[in-house]
């Protein structure tokens, strides 16, 4: 198979992204100032980290819509640990651990009890969000030590480190998905759990694993987002799950499992993260933004489906 057929979906997203970038060169060259590109990348970093986890979840034929609520809880955990006087690395580890535990909760319910992921995570999404609201009344975690913002590394380092770290996470997982048995097990589980089981993969363990990884990466995403500020908003991350899932499916990962790649997800994240500011640069009114974002999602998936539909017909 040629590169074009195996990576058709990634190429079509890349093409769409290319069109957007060219439009910006023509109509809003100011978009390409260094500071703006940096800010777009910093803003995209938490979404990318979570999208890495979501790609694994969807590849394993699952879904997790609770990550917005997890995101809020992990940020609050990091803030509270830092406020309690613990060193920032410990607070950071706390956020990841909190995420991993919440992911494990989803994982036990889905893999252990065999319950459908979309309903389980609908329940944890609502339950966790309301429990957090009840506990905090939305009051922010404030008066944090000065070392909280940028983890004490300062703004200049922090603004490079955040997207850098996100890219490192992405690259490591992308490499692992190609070259490690665990990565192939995720694909196998998502393609056909029964066949996977017969070839020695343990699908339930894989499913549990992807939820834990999803949670831990959500914790990391929350941390990377929280440390850009001096205090922690408690009810953050509303709608985060939709942004992440949209990025992953626009990037071509099949909701039916087993098909997709992290390259596609990276492109999906970049496309959606660029689209928001790009619309402002192109002079769009804010109140049309949501509609245009819906159009971008639909066009990306419909173009692909249209392509495969015509190809199917052309087949003898």
């Amino acid at each position: 198979m040629s590169l074009i057929t195996t990576h058709r979906r990634e190429l079509s997203v890349a093409a769409a992204y290319g069109v957007l970038l060219v439009a910006l060169i023509l109509f809003a060259p100011a978009f390409y100032q260094g500071a703006n590109l940096r800010d777009v990348l910093v803003g995209a970093a938490p979404v990318l980290v979570a999208a890495v986890g979501m790609t694994l979840v969807i590849l394993a034929r699952q879904i997790d819509i609770s990550i917005g609520s997890q995101f809020a809880i992990c940020a609050v955990v990091a803030g509270m640990l830092a406020k309690a006087g613990l060193a920032m690395p410990i607070a950071a580890a706390g956020a990841l651990a909190a995420g991993a535990s919440l992911g494990a909760l989803n994982g036990v319910l889905v893999a252990g009890f065999g319950l459908p992921a979309i309903v389980v995570t609908l329940a944890t999404m609502v339950g966790l969000r309301e429990a957090l609201r009840w506990a905090t009344e939305g009051v922010w975690v404030q008066d944090l030590p000065p070392g909280f913002q940028w983890m004490g590394f300062g703004q200049d380092v922090g603004r490079f480190a955040i997207p850098g770290l996100a890219l490192v996470v992405w690259a490591l997982v992308a490499w692992g998905m190609r070259h490690l048995a665990a990565g192939r097990a995720v694909y196998a589980t998502g393609s056909d759990a029964e066949v996977a089981r017969l070839t020695g993969v343990r699908p339930r363990r894989v499913v549990f694993g992807v939820f834990v990884v999803m949670g831990a990466l959500t914790g990391l995403a929350a941390l990377l987002s929280a440390i850009q500020f001096i205090d922690v908003q408690t009810n953050s991350g509303v709608g985060f799950e939709l942004r992440v899932i949209a990025a992953v499916v626009v990037g071509g990962t099949s909701i039916a499992g087993g098909k997709g790649s992290l390259v596609g997800s990276l492109l999906g994240v970049l496309l959606l993260a660029t689209a928001g500011p790009a619309l402002t640069f192109l002079g769009s009114q804010a109140y049309w933004d949501r509609a245009l974002q819906g159009v971008i999602i639909l066009v990306a998936v419909a173009a692909d489906a249209f392509g495969s539909a015509t190809r199917l017909k052309a087949r003898p």
Binding site: I255, R290, G294, A305, F306
Partner: peptide, 26 residues
């Protein structure tokens, strides 16, 4: 087109609300 309903309606979820906001300027 055979696109999974979850994805289609995720897109139209933004689209419909967005058109409502656009038409009324929110």
């Amino acid at each position: 087109l055979g696109i999974p309903p979850l994805i289609v309606t995720l897109g139209t979820y933004s689209l419909f609300r967005g058109v409502a906001e656009g038409v009324t300027a929110g």
